[in-house]
Design a protein around this nucleic acid. Structure first.
Lengths: 233, 233
DNA sequence: ACTACGGTTGAATCCTGAA
DNA sequence: GTTCAGGATTCAACCGTAG
């Protein structure tokens, strides 16, 4: 295991971001030390926007990517939680995978993005929400009050976007706050642009991120370094 | 088939409400004459509030009640739609049943009730939404613009409630308006207090409702008679 | 009143994979 | 080939509000 990772595990360091494949990297982590796994995996869309070519195809997006859930279950502490982003049309696959990984699905949480996306204009409702599965390992109780099953938060505006599926920090911060205590350890196996890490550092949670793409990993490190700096000052 | 039903089918009458078992009654209806089936079936909760004993246990609520979906598919016209209310924890069952009935599930729609219910306070997000599956029979295009996948509408206040799972007319009216044209025929196999019928009459759609419980059927008839009266004046 | 602005809503768009 | 449906979006127009 890398030195920085064990330093975060022991609490001597606040965060780290690993550039690598999450299936490989998760396997190196010890059992039962993480309090929250928060993941936004590829949904299996393999969608390349025809409108804009700003971002390339996402990696591992040929089909719903859920193999990391088994190791997520293993590294979670008893009483730890999983938050897994997905979309209405693939949510069943992820729910099944979470259950089969040995976690207890407790709630379907809705992220209301306030502004809608495209989709089939003629015959589908304009897609304005994503689904977040909330699951626990064993018994769990919210440490800081009970959140609602609908979270309204506008999506990141296209101008500010540095990753095609970037989640707003404003959405993640209250989520992390409600499901963990200060100083606990959060892990994101598909860190992307690092929004989860930024949210964690802002409210004093330790964080381990894993990201496959070297460019996104660099971006994430940069954003988190800033957040750590601002939190310290 | 009852005389009033055939009158609604032919357009000589605007609405009717049948007091009976929907599985039996649906079987009597002809193929392909209904444009929208809108149902709020028992979710399979078998829940009797310990807090308030205002309402008795719902009938047929031992497990998710979805057998009506097969006949719903049959009575729908080509290009017709289904809207099926359900809850986060049983939505999979209904989605599967809709698919197996031969309909094409197009969207997961979220009703954001704005105020949350109870549920397990310690370990689940406060449930603030219901799921509505939107499915079509064959090809379909919205006749009056494209609705959003998140519908915000406060639930009926406990004081005004005449049925334990009563839906607000304010929620149903725009839904019916978006998926049907004026004068088309809407059917609700589990009509409850008749909110769907009221919404239909207010915006000039024909309506057939089926309700098992004689008291609720009476209530529904009363509400719809009023709505028909106000629409006519 | 008239303009500037920001928050919302409707809808164009065009490549790709599947039939 | 050729058609057709569909899509992890983007953009312009519109409206209510504030200055």
């Amino acid at each position: 295991m890398k030195r920085r990772v064990s330093q975060v595990l022991s609490g001597r360091r606040r965060w780290t971001l690993i550039n690598g494949d999450c299936l490989t990297e998760l396997r190196k982590l010890p059992d039962g030390r993480v309090h929250a796994v928060i993941g936004d995996p590829p949904y299996g869309i393999s969608y390349q926007s025809k409108h804009s070519r700003r971002f390339n195809l996402l990696a591992n997006d040929a089909r719903p990517f859920h193999w990391w859930l088994f190791d997520a279950q293993r590294i979670l502490a008893d009483g730890g939680v999983l938050l897994c982003f997905c979309r209405g049309d693939v949510q069943d696959v992820f729910k099944d995978a979470i259950t089969h990984a040995g976690l207890h699905v407790r709630s379907q949480v809705i992220w209301d993005r306030e502004y809608h996306g495209a989709g089939d204009c003629a015959s589908t409702f304009a897609p304005q929400h994503d689904v977040i599965w909330f699951a626990t390992k064993g018994r769990f109780a919210f440490p800081n009050g009970r959140p609602r099953s609908v979270l309204r938060c506008p999506k990141v505006s296209p101008r500010e976007l540095v990753h095609p599926t970037q989640k707003p920090v404003r959405l993640l911060r209250p989520l992390v706050e409600k499901v963990t205590r200060p100083n606990q350890l959060v892990l994101d196996p598909t860190a992307g642009s690092g929004s989860t890490g930024v949210a964690c550092l802002q409210i004093g949670r330790r964080f381990i991120g894993i990201e496959l793409d070297p460019d996104f990993a660099k971006t994430a490190r940069c954003r988190m370094r800033q957040a750590a700096h601002q939190a310290a000052s």
